[in-house]
Nucleic acid binder design. Structure first.
Lengths: 378, 378
DNA sequence: TTGGTTAGTAAAGAGTACTAACTAAAGATC
DNA sequence: GATCTTTAGTTAGTACTCTTTACTAACCAA
């Protein structure tokens, strides 16, 4: 029983055509991972015969998703390989980042995550006065960027703060002053392009997962105005029972009270750790000890909240995303406090680090999610 | 993009034969869920044509896994259905529960989770004196029960405390005094039957998942000598980076110290909540207030530990497994404390409850895991 | 030149599920 | 009572997917 049979995870029947589609996706994924590759090599990687791989590649070339990129220099005996690769111009996506209202961004992103063209808008949001973000601003921004794309885009991915329903409606987003905004519908109707709306932390997590696919079990904590996270377990982004996974900002941390939070309760994680708080401490005095102390307390509280999560899910990585300068001093505090509160792992120890490339992390993640949704490319 | 295409989750190619196997599994799963069913109904449930379903059923009948159970009483116009059902006698498993050394259990379990025959052994384990459980006892117990099975068993499932490696080796199990015991290998060689070894909490969680398949996102907390848990996210049991998911007993809970734990640190969850502690409080005095107080404190601390997990994974259920009499008073405490520490859910509120049928929960879970591993039956 | 190795293609075959058309058996309708 | 309608299940033929086997093409090494 040890060699567990290859198990497929679906709740509906699997037809041969479904398998074919999966195999086509695998080819694209493999190409994304390896770059230009021969058909023979692809066949070995994916686990089909050369014959089948030639057929799969031919289909992808016919669709304009893959193209021939010439002959490899021979590296030994035998006929030199003819390499194929993703057709980058055929895999453009439009990514939108709404996480910072003062700096709404949209960009054309290629399959490697490179931003080809970017535009920004500034929006003033004051939820307290009932002045939310006008969705028309988002639609205009998307249209403007879409017009600059050199090739048709595969889809539009939007990373937004707040809770997003599976149908692409933003249930609630306090930072944007939104309640039940049918964002997917609005943008899709305005553009005629498929639209995917996700939470910004989930997008960031997907970006991290795509760039460093080593960690199959991790949590990415995004520190901004508030605190959110994305959880990856077994290589899959956790969605949750109500599509609200990752909303840890208003979890009470500790058993000794704390400051009163905007949500009305005391000791929420956001009251201990947030960008405004870290920045204020940095700006306030010339006393570096004060800033250190805020980082110390915030990092400790984050570790208190994360410890049960890390233990219960047996995570191997904790990643912090946000302003690097502010979070840099937090990392060792989190690492130390987590070590204090957990049994040491038998094998590889827990890694705590900053996100590999925090810039445009939401944009890249939104683009990656579109690729995943449209092509099954991880 | 809203109708997300049917996505298969594998990292290797999907051959037609893989799809076929999945579809056969789906038939078994559906029969388990619905009981005796017609081929036409199965076809509608699984999502294939009647023709294909007849073929699938014929194969399963040929293997002795499904059998004809006569004609249905006509419930309307049309030819009456000929019903088929799982052949329960052909789907026996042998389940073993090592979670309580003083009461090692093994049983023949049928596909419904009914225990057909059971045997027990008592073992004295004193890890402090280096006297661990002799694996030969387990082998003898398994052999004894196996001899009583009326039909060949599909596999042997063992639920054991401690950390289990994917190859079926028990890495460490303090309660049994075990370190690196190749349990799967030992039992497999002694019996010639496929063996699956899992953590006891994981087995219990699988049992709960099988009996009430409603909750796709839940945590089951097993309270015994220590505290362990099984996490289900998106309907899947979480394994973790080092196959150590669920080990929350030695997570520090709270920010205000606590008793010293056997692991050497202070404030571990196990120091706040455990069966010995609850029982001692119940037995100690005639003062019911004392027992209440222990349940109060233990339940509160459990909620403190679970809150970040529930929020981050957006769980919909928290299930407590263990001695019902002791845990009964803990449930409302956990529910209240969790509500205090979390933002209320927009939709269905969080459910906190006892396991539906705590008796034999590890045995049933181990059996269910064998069915899953051998047949893909959930 | 000859032999060995690797890439890629061609033809034939096995497996899977489909559609179309059938039989069987019941209730409904005239 | 005869005929229509409905549902279950089977038979025959078809399309699709991947495989095995056998081939050509192109290179290195001796």
């Amino acid at each position: 029983m040890s060699p567990t049979p290859r198990r497929i995870s679906t709740s509906t029947a699997v037809l041969p055509a479904d398998g074919r589609r999966q195999n086509l996706s695998l080819v694209l994924q493999t190409l994304r991972r390896l770059g230009p590759t021969s058909r023979a090599q692809l066949a070995r990687e994916v686990g089909v015969t050369k014959v089948t791989m030639s057929d799969l590649v031919a289909e992808l070339i016919g669709e304009g998703r893959v193209r021939d990129v010439g002959t490899a220099e021979q590296a030994g005996p035998g006929k030199p390989a003819t390499l194929v690769d993703l057709d980058r111009s055929g895999l453009l996506t439009l990514a939108v980042d709404l996480s910072v209202p003062a700096r709404l961004q949209a960009a054309v992103v290629d399959v490697t995550g490179t931003v080809l063209h970017r535009e920004e808008r500034a929006a003033a949001v004051d939820a307290g006065q009932g002045r939310g973000l006008d969705p028309a601003v988002v639609v205009e921004l998307v249209r403007s960027v879409l017009a600059t794309a050199q090739h048709p885009v595969l889809g539009i991915g939007i990373g937004t703060p707040g809770l997003v329903a599976p149908d692409g409606t933003v249930r609630t987003a306090p930072n944007l002053g939104w309640t039940d905004v049918a964002l997917r519908e609005l943008v899709a109707e305005a553009t005629g392009v498929p639209v995917l709306v996700t939470n910004d932390s989930d997008a960031a997590t997907q970006a991290e997962l795509s760039t460093s696919p080593a960690s199959q079990d991790m949590v990415l904590v995004q520190v901004g105005r508030g605190v959110g996270c994305g959880v990856v377990s077994g290589g899959r982004l956790v969605r949750g029972a109500h599509h609200a996974a990752g909303e840890i900002g208003h979890v009470t941390v500790g058993t000794d009270g704390g400051e009163t939070c905007s949500c009305g309760r005391a000791g929420c994680l956001e009251t201990w750790l947030s960008v405004p708080r870290l920045r204020a401490a940095l700006d306030a005095g010339d006393d570096p000890a004060a800033a250190d102390s805020v980082a110390e307390v915030g990092g400790h509280r984050l570790a208190v909240a994360l410890a049960p999560l890390v233990a219960a899910l047996d995570l191997s990585e904790v990643v912090l995303a946000g302003p690097a300068a502010l979070l840099e001093p937090v990392v060792p505090v989190v690492a130390r406090s987590l070590a204090d509160r957990l049994l040491p792992s038998l094998d590889t120890p827990l890694t705590v680090r900053l996100a590999t490339s925090p810039e445009d992390i939401v944009l890249r993640g939104a683009a990656a999610l579109v690729l995943w949704d449209r092509l099954g490319v991880v």
